[in-house]
């Protein structure tokens, strides 16, 4: 379980997170929604330690995220980045098997390659993609490779940062379905940030809405359309009128 307690983060005068309290139960898929620039990515990066929070506490499975063995902590996570964040200079299979080629999870190259090809198959890519470079792939294929990399070491927790941004609706649907299938299949805890409502409905068990630096609303995805929260209603229905200023 991931538990955030009063997490705050400011960049200069811009107080992005103003006291985040959130629990992500083990094995559940929680989607954080919110407008652009509301700090969704910062929230994920705080949990991973890529950004240091100014105050508050982040616990992962009862352990303080900021203490202890950093490698062991990070080994629990897989992450799909918004733009894929694939390493341009490495082949696709080397990207997928990155963790398996070095560090504590290191395996022989042939074994790592076989696992990478298997993971590529799992996300719907053929084996011949393995020896290509990321720059040779379409946006949708890059997302799939990023997904394969995120699951390659079979992590207990997977983060998805805007998984469908920049994809056409059909490819977005494919990626959403893949994420849902993989999360269920692996029994992993998942945290996704998005402002794509089709992703929310496809991926989420629970939904948290981030607005004004705090969790404005949290509940099961089934309650999303009847949340009774004017912020959530405006966001879900994409209305310009409402408590959320359209120009931020």
């Amino acid at each position: 379980m991931i538990k955030l307690d009063g997490v705050e983060k400011a960049f200069g005068r811009n107080r992005v997170l103003r006291g985040i309290n959130l629990e992500v139960p083990r094995g559940k898929s929680v989607v954080v929604i919110g407008g652009s620039g509301t700090g969704k990515s910062v929230l994920l990066k705080c949990i991973l330690g890529l950004v240091q929070p100014d105050s508050g506490r982040i616990m992962v499975d009862g352990k303080d995220a900021g203490r202890g063995d950093r490698d062991a902590f990070l080994a629990q996570f897989g992450m799909l980045f918004q733009g894929g964040a694939l390493f341009d200079s490495l082949h696709v299979w080397e990207n997928v098997a990155f963790r398996l080629l070095r560090g504590s999870l290191k395996r022989p190259r042939e074994e790592a390659r076989a696992i990478a090809i298997e993971k590529l198959r799992r996300v719907g890519l053929k084996a011949d993609v393995a020896d290509m470079y990321p720059g040779e792939l379409s946006g949708g294929m890059q997302k799939r490779v990023g997904l394969a990399r995120a699951i390659a070491a079979e992590p207990q927790i997977i983060f998805f940062d805007e998984p469908t941004t920049g994809l056409d609706p059909i490819m977005a649907g494919v990626i959403n379905d893949l994420i849902r299938e993989i999360v269920v299949e692996m029994g992993a805890t998942a945290m996704t940030i998005t402002h794509d409502m089709s992703s929310v409905r496809a991926i989420a068990d629970n939904v948290a809405m981030l607005h004004g630096g705090v969790i404005q609303w949290y509940g099961p995805v089934a309650d999303l359309d009847n949340s009774g929260d004017p912020f959530v209603d405006q966001f879900v229905h994409g209305r310009a009128e409402g408590p959320i200023e359209a120009v931020r």
Binding site: L74, F81, R102, S104
Partner: peptide, 16 residues
């Protein structure tokens, strides 16, 4: 370029 495309963040999440 690696930094602006989040490849450096990806390295960290991959325990590197």
């Amino acid at each position: 370029t690696m930094k602006v495309t989040e490849q450096i963040d990806a390295l960290v999440t991959l325990s590197t």
